[in-house]
Simulated assay, not measured.
Amino acid sequence: MGVIKLKNIRTFSFHGCLVEESKIGSDYSVDLKIKTDLTTSCLSDELNDTVDYVLLNKIVVEEMAIRSKLLEHVAQRIIFRTFKELPQVSKVTIGVSKLNPPIGGDVESVTVELTEDRN
């Protein structure tokens, strides 16, 4: 088994419960970690024997572009889509962070992190 991580995928998205958030948007950061068998790709040095992180990034960017009220919801969509499109992935951990959230304080970010194993 092995792990592939994409750290600090940056997007500008429109998530949030406030009407203003749906109009002005915010900066987000996503960390994605997947677990998969890397044995074959370690030996073959072939892209088709591994999980292409370009596709992982594409899934994150496309799902982040779809508005959600809750970070939990968008994170779960990314997990579902990763499992659907990449059957070799056995586990996904994702952290979705809203940078400078409008919560009435000096807070750098708020993060929701989910981990799921393939059933």
Rank of each mutant, 00 (worst) to 15 (best):
S26C: 01
S97C: 10
E113G: 09
P101N: 06
K35L: 07
E85K: 06
E20N: 07
E62I: 14
K35V: 14
V51P: 01
L114W: 01
K84V: 07
G25L: 04
K33F: 13
T111S: 00
L56V: 14
V19L: 13
K98A: 00
V30H: 01
G105L: 05
R10C: 11
S44D: 15
E63G: 06
R67K: 10
D117W: 08
R118Q: 07
V107W: 00
P101Y: 03
D49Y: 15
L70I: 06
E72F: 03
T40A: 11
R81A: 01
N119Q: 10
T40M: 10
L43D: 15
L86R: 12
D27M: 13
E113I: 15
G95K: 12
K33V: 15
T115L: 00
E62L: 13
S90Q: 09
L71T: 02
K33S: 14
T93C: 11
D37Q: 13
S26D: 03
G104S: 08
H15P: 05
V96R: 04
N8T: 09
S22N: 11
F12Y: 04
A65Y: 13
K5W: 06
N8L: 08
K5R: 06
S41L: 11
K5A: 07
C42E: 02
I34Q: 10
K23Q: 15
I103Q: 04
V89I: 08
N57I: 09
D37L: 15
V107P: 00
E72N: 08
N8H: 15
T11P: 09
V112E: 05
L38F: 08
T93A: 14
V112K: 01
R118T: 12
F80A: 04
K98D: 01
E108A: 12
S26R: 00
K23M: 13
V107S: 01
S109N: 04
I94S: 03
V60Y: 02
